[in-house]
Structure formats: C-alpha cells, structure tokens
Design a protein around this nucleic acid. Structure first.
Lengths: 219, 219
DNA sequence: TAGATTGTTAATCGATTAACAATC
DNA sequence: TAGATTGTTAATCGATTAACAATC
C-alpha cells in the first residue's frame, strides 16, 4: 500500500491508531530509539502481524532487520491522525460535562483549541473557563463562520441536540464530537463521532451480568 | 440458541444491545405495541437479518407472522443487560468529569445508584452532589466492602489511575468504568469498560483529515 | 555473513447477509 | 386460507493471523 488516499480504512484500524500513537510517544519519552512490531505487540496486546498489516495501510515506515524508528513512526502516525495541525473547536453546552472537556488540558497539547463555549443559561454567559469565554448560543453560527471552527463538541441535553445539529448543518464545520445520547441528523460531509456514555455503561452492565449468571450456573 | 449461558457473545453484538433497548423504549413510549426486524432495521440502520441473528443469541422473542411485542422484547433486553437490578456505584475523582457523571440523572433511572464520590482534595471532601457525599479516598476500600459496591467509576488523572486500580483489585468490585486514559491492570474477574476520550477525539480527527486529503486530491 | 524483521500474499477465522422452511 | 415474519442454516464478506521472500 503506497498511497495516502486509496481504499477506505476500516473503523477497526482507525481505532487502533491512537493506541499506536500513545504507545510510541511513551517509548519516545523513555528515549527508546527503535522498536519492532514484536515489541509493540507485547506492549499493546495486538499481534505483530496485525500491527504490520495496519501500518501498511498508510505506507512503509520500517526497515527489514531493524524495525521502526520510534521518533519517525510516531510523527508519521501523528500526521495520519491529523495531529500536525491546529483544530479549532467550540463546545456547545456549558454544563458539567462541557466544563470538564473545556478543562482537559490534554486536548490543547495535541492541537485541539477550544475557542468558545456556548450555552443558553444567562447565568453562565459571560463567564470564562480557562480563558475560554462562555457565549450566548444565538451567536454560535456567526462565531463559527468568523473563526473557521472545525470541530463542534455537543454536550447539551438530548432534547436540545437536534436543534444544535440543525444549526451546525448550516455551517462549514467539519466534524461533530457528540456526547448527546442520540443520533444526529447532519449532512454527509460532516463527520460525527459519538460518545454514548449510557451505552458504554450498559455494555459494562451486560458483561458483569454475564459473569454473575455463569457463576450461578456453575454452583 | 436456547440457553442463557453458552457461547461468549461478541463485543459487536453487545454494543448493539443498548441501541436495541433504547429504540424499543422509544417505541413503547409512542405506545407502539408490536414491531418487526424490518421496522427495527429501518429505525436503527442494521439489516433485519442481523437483528434477528443478534436476538437469537439470547432466545426466541418473536412470533412468525407477527413480529415482536415491544413491551416484552424491551423487558427481555433490559434483563439481558442487567437493567432489572440495582447496581451500586462509586465515583472516584470529584473533578468536573466525576461531578458531571454524578449529576447524570439518567443513570439513576436505569438502576445505577451512585453511593459516594471519593477524592483526595480536602476542599471537596465533605461536600455533596445531589445528596451524594464526597468522601476521603482513604475510606474507599472500607466503604466498598460495607456497602457492597458493584461498579467503580474512575475519573482521576492518569497518574493516579494505577494506584486506584490497585486498591480496587483488593475489593469485591465487579466492574470498573474507566475514564482515565490508560489501560488498567486488574484481576480477570473485574470487568473493565474504557472510555478513552482522547482516542475518540483522535478518531474524529483522522476521519476529518481523510476527507481533507481526498478533497485535495480531487482538485 | 548470519540474524532479525519488514511488507505482503495466502489462509483462517469470525461476523454479516441472504435464503428459506416453519408457522403464526 | 394467504401473507407476514420468525429463527436458523448456508453463503458471503471482511478482518485477523500465519507464512515467507526480500533485504537491512
């Protein structure tokens, strides 16, 4: 696989990319210079074969007999993930979750810059969280246009999510990070990444329940 | 598939269960009495075949020519997910995210009861969030034992996560809902469900970047 | 050179989809 | 009864793993 554009990369692969990236950053921090699919396999719990297969979707980053240069590979994956550029974000919903995300310094470190937070609550409008102003949601559309916002983070309650999505649909936003527990209806050119917390908790509940049942049947 | 214990259900199936459940609850609220794999397919975007295949892992819930009774099926899936019992939780970390989760009324509705929040910050210890006390993390282990806590939610910073996991490993906890951006090292009998927000954001970034590149190549 | 490790092709495994007999 | 729809078996598709020639 030599090119950077051909076939669609499966979600399975894309979800592993951040894990590769983090692992490589860790290795770099420990001043490890080179690594191999075998070492990464040990560290990440994927097979070495899968790791090589995954990388080969994006190019040839290694060298026979040597492996991979940690620094180089980590930079390559950063670029693949789009972490080599700044992404301007807004957060919609200044509740606990919105504030939690606004306070997450880690996003800044990786180039995700929160430019503003929007809310309907007059008590919150005008306040700031870590230099980031909370603005009236009525000003959101103009703000997006004027500031070339790329990513919108939705942390409003479920019953507000549809109207927010509607407004965003009329902007040049590229992606939505959606924390509202509902599927959003937006045009195809807007990428949506859902974080459905309730579903995640229910999944945990299922697995716990599964263990409980199997124990009951054992005795 | 007639039994409730045999082969391990794949993650792919388990992750769809909460979606089925939500959809059925919605239908029930609209007083819809019966549905079919075809209707669910339309509502959820999975194939009717997959939906029937998924359900068949857990039993026979339908009737030829009729379909599924909404009420019945929704109750059956609730039970499969373990939503028919109360799950006692604690939240570890009273920062924004911990507080956000403590305020999520929706979890209560489904039987996930937050009994306490734990933190190291003396300024927070003693306060309450929606009746839930914030306690000193030193008291966590005893609290878990005395109150039969089933689920621990970890919202502490990455560098605190390992020690928290260590303490939890010595308790009778059944599951961990982990928001710290690291893999936890816990015994096999503790189920871990990870919510890695940074990975989720990077995934979004990848897909946005992908579109950008393909546009560049088009022109 | 000998040993190590890549990138890739082929084989395997598992998940999704299609087809259909059973039957409400 | 005729039409609808299930649960399940078989076919297909896609993702993971194994194997290995190429080569540093």
């Amino acid at each position: 696989m030599y090119n950077g554009e051909r076939k669609r990369i499966s979600d399975a692969v894309v979800k592993r990319l951040p894990k590769y990236y983090k692992c490589l950053v860790n290795l770099a921090q420990e001043n490890v210079e080179r690594t191999s699919s075998q070492e990464l396999s040990r560290l990440l719990g994927f097979t070495a074969s899968q790791i090589r297969q995954d990388f080969s979707n994006f190019g040839e980053f290694g060298q026979q007999g040597y492996g991979y240069n940690v620094e180089q590979l980590s930079k390559a994956i950063a670029k693949i993930l789009g972490l080599n550029t700044v992404h301007k974000m807004i957060i919609i919903g200044a509740g606990n979750l919105g504030q939690a995300l606004a306070n997450y310094v880690n996003f800044d470190v990786h180039g995700f810059k929160t430019m503003a937070i929007f809310d309907v609550n007059p008590k919150l409008i005008g306040l700031k969280i870590r230099e980031v102003p909370i603005l009236d949601i009525d000003k959101m559309k103009d703000f997006i246009d004027e500031n070339d916002i790329e990513i919108a983070v939705i942390t409003v309650p479920q019953d507000r999510a549809a109207e927010v999505a509607q407004i965003l649909s009329e902007t040049n936003i590229s992606g939505i990070w959606n924390f509202a527990p509902t599927e959003l209806n937006v045009p195809d050119h807007i990428i949506v990444e859902n974080v459905h917390l309730t579903e995640s908790l229910f999944t945990l509940s299922y697995r716990i329940n599964e263990v409980k049942i199997s124990k009951m049947n054992t005795f």
